[in-house]
Design a binder for these strands. Structure first.
Lengths: 212, 212
DNA sequence: ACCTGAACACCGTTCAAGT
DNA sequence: ACCTGAACACCGTTCAAGT
């Protein structure tokens, strides 16, 4: 669809908040009403855009035979895909795409887990957890990146100013890490935690439980 | 702030998409322009609302002495808080609150981890991971709940229709779990995974790594 | 000090009418 | 079959002027 390509290009240029049907129409040398011949609503267009976001995730084969490394690779690809376009995480979070890329990616995640020996429901829930973490993380990461581009005090500065000495002792000690812009390190930590949990849970189980 | 209370009440009534400055003003028997005497922008108002969302998270003391159970309890409280108001997760995800409730909650999370023996940076990153997961999960959960209330085919039906037999074998096997509405089970699975990962990582470490 | 009235510069969406 | 023109019913935000 030429409309979706144009919309993604405009998204990179102006961001989600400024991506309007009128502005997209202008970029395509057409009147806004014409867009509704292909998409019934703006939300439908956004859903189509979300689908395309994940297009590159399954192009190359996975490089490792180890299931936890394969899972990590898929997770990294999804993060990279969402970060690849301005406000990509927000676009994806705001829609519920059910196209070939999204379904293929979910199938791949669950497939790796099933081949590793996890039961169908454990594999499905682990995949959901992974995707929810990736979405939450990339949402934060892109918000932090574009927040720095906006006017006004950046988020780390706001945080440093708000953490009054003595009032939040643990937060104060963690400030250097929390205000760090090494989001890859944050992502790898969280991903590692989930993989560690899956290894500890072990294939064959059906629930991790929460007890000690 | 009476404005924030009125805004939260209106949010529950009409949802985030219909929460406009004009409509809020009408509910408060005032003209829209008057709201700008207290909040410079709508986003600023939403940030204040996000702060209030977490108000109940630290009211009662934690019931268990076990650090992983304490962490789980905090996580469950944040989920409950976000689910407590219509579109709560979307409101929270769209802002970057730095008020007493948000900071106090972050401090509590990190505090539990530090008292368990984790280093400052591991504690901070684990807290970020936890919050990102909770946000991603509640975003999905509320989207699914309100999606069912809208017109048109619900999300599970769309998924069932899209998963053509044979094309996504793993997804097909996982469909019963993926379309289940027992979001508490999904949440507890993901939470358990993260806690398991933290236990396996063990206090004293600084990074989980991703290798086997 | 606080609010109104009125405007500015936009939105998403619809639909008769044109070609 | 596809697009335009024009409208409908809204938005967030600003600001002189009132009280």
């Amino acid at each position: 669809m030429r409309t979706v390509e144009a919309a993604l290009a405009l998204l990179d240029e102006v961001g989600l908040d400024a991506l309007t049907m009128r502005r997209l129409a202008e970029a395509m040398d057409v009147r806004a009403g014409a867009l509704y011949r292909y998409f019934a609503t703006k939300h439908e267009l956004l859903t189509a855009m979300a689908e395309v976001l994940l297009a590159d995730c399954l192009e190359r084969p996975l490089s490792s035979p180890d299931w936890s490394e394969r899972l990590a690779e898929l997770a990294r690809r999804m993060r990279t895909a969402l970060l690849g376009r301005r406000d990509g995480a927000r676009v994806y979070a705001g829609t519920h795409a059910t196209g070939a890329h999204t379904l293929g990616f979910a199938d791949a995640l669950i497939g790796v887990l099933r081949e590793a020996g996890f039961a169908a429901d454990a594999a499905a829930r682990a995949a959901l957890t992974l995707v929810n973490f990736i979405l939450g993380h990339t949402l934060e990461e892109q918000a932090a990146l574009q927040g720095a581009a906006d006017e006004g005090p950046a988020d780390p500065d706001l945080l440093r100013a708000a953490v009054t000495p003595g009032q939040y002792p643990h937060l104060a000690a963690a400030l250097p890490v929390l205000t760090s812009t090494d989001f890859t390190a944050h992502f790898e930590f969280g991903l590692g935690l989930l993989l560690q949990g899956l290894r500890a849970l072990g294939p064959g189980s059906t629930s991790p439980g929460t007890g000690g």
